[in-house]
Amino acid sequence: MVTDSWIARLLAGLVGLAPVALTGASVQPPADTVVYRDLPAGQIQQQRVLRYWTADRRASARQVRARGRGAPAVPDLANVGALWPGSALATVGRVFFSMDGQDFLCSAATVRSSNRDLVVTSGHCAKNGSGSWAENWVFVPAYRDGGGPHGGFTARRMFVPDQWSTGADDGYDVAMVVLAPSAGRHVADVVGFNDIAFAQPRGRQVYTFGYPSYEKYDGRRLAYCSGRPADDPYGETKAQGLRCDLTQGSSGGPWMSGFDPLTGTGTIVSVSSFKYADEERVMYGPYFGDAVRRLYDRAEKG
């Protein structure tokens, strides 16, 4: 068995506690069409989730296949996919979670919030459309080669738009996840955060980051693409497409405008969501409009 040194860091301050089942209730507030789930987030529950992710489970977790039609060097302005040339970005991390009895991988990033505990990812990394919510959800910031310098943060509340929860609409494939503090520290105080913006002009230069784990990528290092996205040419969603060969596992990774390679931060305007089966070199991300703004307004105070 591989020594789980990162698990030891995650469990700092959580010793001598017995495991319990992770349960929660789904709530749909009709006033702002945001759906959320509360998760037990005390020390006992954190310990149970963190202990769940053994080295074997992390290694065997699957990449989420997003829904779609058929299933510090200065970065390049146009890059269809490569490993990030510098250190892992502190605010971007890998996500491990379970859903319907299987273990999965995604990506996520911290965002500015009044609770200092917020990350943004894809909706399908938190809820399977109208189906199950994720469990055993852990965010590991600055992930690299099997772990991260700051350990991990478990989820305490998840939010998705009603359009995703009831119809699995790819144009609203976004989730905001509120994390539990780790050893009494909020994630934003540990790693910093990115800004977030809504209703931005389409087609602006972006950089997208994530942990792809299929084909030429093994998920151990941060990867990125860059360029100018364009509207969905099929007209099936309100999403935008960016030429990008990142694969499964990069779902939920941030799309940043105004990215600063010196600070490793920017303004998040979308997240990686899906690819069309006959267009595997284009990644699509939902447009952050009013629905995502309402989602953020609810989650950042949660």
Rank of each mutant, 00 (worst) to 15 (best):
S250C: 07
A21C: 12
Y143N: 00
A25P: 00
A73K: 06
D278H: 09
R37P: 04
R144N: 08
C106T: 04
M1S: 11
R57K: 15
G42T: 10
T237S: 15
W164H: 00
E279C: 14
L77M: 06
S60T: 12
G24W: 13
R204M: 07
P233C: 13
V80A: 07
D290I: 11
A61E: 03
Y296L: 05
W164E: 03
A25G: 05
V271Y: 02
L118K: 08
R57T: 07
R221C: 01
A188R: 10
A25F: 11
A78F: 11
S60R: 09
G203H: 10
R48W: 02
T166F: 13
R202A: 15
R37F: 03
Q163M: 01
A55V: 14
D145K: 10
V140Q: 08
G219I: 06
V191T: 09
R281W: 06
G152Y: 02
A134M: 05
A155P: 07
W133S: 02
L105M: 04
L118V: 15
V111H: 03
Q102H: 13
Y284E: 02
G123V: 10
K127G: 12
E236Y: 13
E215T: 09
R65N: 05
G68K: 07
P229H: 02
A155G: 11
I268M: 10
V95C: 03
W84H: 15
G253H: 15
P201I: 06
T91M: 13
